[in-house]
Design a protein around this nucleic acid. Structure first.
Length: 727
DNA sequence: ATTAGGG
DNA sequence: CCCTAAT
């Protein structure tokens, strides 16, 4: 490559950290400049080589240099290089010193500090400019990384929930994050509303909690109603956002729930990531359906639609629920809106790649609502109901008028009535509604020319991936976990009015990321020892606390609510083992209302079955949880390495996995190692989740490229040590 | 704290 | 993923 003969020093983007980047003398500067050019060329070569088709396509839709994209890149670089940008002077010196003492000497010799300083400043400027150019370049080449705040699609209107596109998360994300941080007051999560109805007659047991069970009950009721929740086109995930007024969105979770629509409960969050939410549809029907007034939803219709296309998802959802605090600002998108969104998406999207970010936490929140009509109350029938919101909701709810209202007025009276009724007969039913849970952010990249179907498919895949781990249901009463599945609701007190307030369900997502060990599919639950929830799984008492996954960006209102309830515990997707502590910390960060958490933790621990502790301990001792890399993560890694090269794992981590705390640079390095190995062996020999051949090809290409670069550098050093001096 | 490699 | 040596 052309680059080989040239000196690479100074190029931040691709160069190895060790090399000197800037020089103080004019001559050196020129050299530097050249090196930069050279680097760029290298980069281009690499890109051309590596990126092949995709990149080329992207090039066609280059982002204008001036826009935010460039900024992002720049930003990214800054981070990469670290200190350089920020502290051109000080930072650089040390680096250089380490890299090349000669340089340093020269520098020192030059003598006057001031002169040096100015020079350095200039150099740094140059560097930055170079970087800019590079970034612009890279952005063009990579196309994918442009999430400038300026991009229209990135912005989220309060209500607009779009399918977002995401670019490479690395740089762009960061920028966006920086910019958007302020806005993220809202949760980034998308909510999937689900409606779950519980027939109280059943047992409180976990088994009961299973969607299937509930579903059947619900189903019956639903059948009565004609409405059909909507199958959104996405089929895959239709999440409905809950409107305050029309809280319920039936969801495909569990047997009961159906995903009616996929909404972004918190737009801002989506922005944060630079992605928009993928909204699928919520129909008016849904709303009606969801309406508290209509406790009975159409299960059947739901079910039929539920088929969304991917039973897997459904299953998973069913298996696990998370409580979702409903976001006050849910809005249902009309079809039109959806269409618009899609258009936007398409426009913005360049690649068909869908990505999930490392952050893929799955914070699902679940809301519960008890419906009991006053009328029914008189009857003593639970079903009558009023919608009862769990405490969680209340907190958040400022938004949900219905919930708060329900609770206060009708709710209580109804509750009392309910209680009485409960006392009278054991036949009374408890109806629960779980409106929504959150879905972690999904990033989807799709070409403009892609069909709607493909986008849907992409969304589906993303959702599927998220839910892969499966979900588990836990119940919390008055902040305590209900572990005895054999107890009846009555015995547990769930059927009593007071209890309702304190009742909470938790969904523990076993996402690969969050809870790798608990892979329903693998049937390996044991491992999760680290995670309390996981450990709990094996036990009769399934009541694990729901952990709202700590979002990277902060907690959503819902989460806060949950916290207030004390029902929810967060599971840290990142660190399953120390979930509690971690959670607590995160919460603190995210919100002020953390008080409950500590208690929760304590209780939780205390409550934990004897078995649990040992398990946990054992597991923790053994090692941290295994968290297989998802395809999305692999893609992120590959992309980062393509850009940064091997040997800069810290930078790779910072760029592509900064939010994935459980991925250390060592992990990334190891993963790359295994990827290279995987790419070299025959497909038949590969195990685990198959990695797209395209990615493996990129791995080999990038690996080859960077290996060569390394050799070249070494040779240069050997043969032309003086170059260092010159530079 | 990082990086590189072996296990 | 873990562990370790070398930076």
């Amino acid at each position: 490559m052309v680059a080989q003969k040239r000196i690479d020093y100074g190029f931040v983007g691709y160069q190895v950290p060790t090399k000197p980047r800037a020089t103080r003398s004019p001559r050196k500067r020129d050299t530097f400049q050249r090196s930069v050019e050279h680097n760029q060329m290298c980069a281009i070569d690499l890109l051309a080589t590596v990126a092949a088709g995709t990149l080329l396509q992207e090039k066609q839709n280059p982002i204008t240099p001036g826009d935010g994209s460039s900024k992002k890149d720049q930003h990214g670089f800054v981070k990469e290089e670290g200190q350089d940008t920020n502290k051109p002077f000080k930072a650089e010196l040390p680096n250089e010193a380490s890299c090349d003492r000669r340089l340093q000497h020269g520098f020192v010799k030059e003598g006057c500090p001031d002169a040096n300083k100015s020079l350095k400043a200039e150099l740094s400027d140059d560097v930055s400019s170079d970087r800019k150019c590079f970034s612009a370049f890279s952005s063009q080449v990579y196309g994918q990384n442009h999430c400038s705040k300026e991009n229209p699609h990135l912005e989220i209107d309060g209500h607009s929930c779009m399918a977002s596109i995401v670019t490479s998360y690395s740089c762009s994300e960061r920028l966006v994050a920086d910019v958007l941080v302020d806005r993220k007051s809202h949760s980034e999560m998308k909510n999937i509303t689900s409606k779950v109805e519980l027939g109280s007659s059943g047992y409180p047991d976990c088994s009961d909690c299973n969607l299937d069970v509930d579903v059947s009950k619900v189903k019956d009721e639903l059948q009565k109603s004609e409405k059909v929740p909507i199958g959104t086109a996405t089929g895959a995930c239709c999440v409905e956002e809950l409107m305050d007024e029309k809280p319920q969105a039936p969801i495909g979770l569990g047997g009961n729930a159906k995903l009616s629509g996929y909404n972004d409960s918190v737009p801002s969050s989506s922005l944060f990531k630079g992605c928009k939410n993928v909204t699928v549809v919520s129909r008016d029907d849904d709303e009606n359906f969801s309406g508290c007034a209509h406790p009975s939803s159409k299960t059947k219709s739901f079910r039929s639609k539920t088929c969304i296309g991917d039973q897997r998802i459904r299953k998973r959802l069913a298996s696990k629920y998370r409580k979702v605090a409903r976001e006050s600002k849910h809005e249902t998108l009309s079809n039109n809106a959806v269409d618009k969104n899609f258009n936007r998406v398409y426009n913005s999207q360049k690649n068909y790649h869908k990505r999930q970010i490392s952050q893929m936490n799955i914070p699902f929140k679940k809301r519960k609502i008890f419906d009991c009509n006053s009328t029914s109350n008189s009857n003593g029938n639970i079903r009558s109901g009023c919608t009862y919101y769990l405490p969680n909701n209340d907190t958040n709810q400022g938004v949900s008028c219905s919930s708060s209202r329900m609770r206060k007025d009708p709710g209580k009276s109804s509750l009392e009535a309910y209680r009485h009724s409960a006392v009278r007969s054991r036949d009374s039913h408890v109806k629960l509604r779980i409106k929504s849970f959150r879905v972690p952010e999904l990033f989807i990249e799709i070409s403009e020319t892609a069909t709607v179907a493909s986008l849907k498919k992409a969304v589906m895949e993303a959702v599927t991936t998220l839910l892969q781990g499966g979900l588990r249901v836990g119940m919390i009463l008055h902040g305590k976990k209900l572990r005895d599945d054999s107890k009846t609701l009555l015995q547990t007190g769930v059927s009593h009015d007071n209890q309702l307030d304190a009742l909470g369900f938790t969904l523990e997502p076993n996402s690969s990321q969050s809870l790798p060990l608990t892979c329903a599919k693998d049937s390996l639950h044991v491992p999760t020892a680290d995670n309390m929830p996981l450990s709990l799984i094996g036990h009769t008492s399934s009541p694990s606390v729901i952990y709202p996954t700590p979002m990277i960006h902060g907690f959503s209102d819902a989460e806060h609510q949950v916290t207030s309830l004390g029902n929810i515990v967060e599971s840290d997707h990142d660190s399953a083992p120390s979930s509690i502590n971690t959670l607590g910390e995160k919460r603190l960060i995210g919100s002020t209302e953390l008080v409950t958490i500590p208690e929760m933790d304590t209780e939780g621990l205390a409550m934990l079955p004897v078995n649990q502790k040992p398990k946990r301990t054992e597991i923790s001792q053994r090692r941290r949880i295994r968290r297989p890399f998802s395809v999305a993560e692999v893609e992120a890694l590959v992309e980062a390495v393509e850009r940064l090269g091997t040997g800069r794992w810290r930078d790779v981590k910072l760029h592509a996995f900064d939010d994935a705390k459980h991925r250390t640079y060592v992990d990334l390095k190891d993963k790359w190692k295994t990827l290279v190995h995987t790419a070299r062996i025959s497909p038949q020999q590969r195990r685990g989740e198959p990695v797209p051949q395209e990615l493996l090809d990129r791995v080999l290409t990038a690996h080859a490229y960077w290996s060569q670069q390394q050799q070249t550098k070494q040779q240069q050093l050997k043969h032309h040590p003086e170059t260092c001096l010159l530079l």
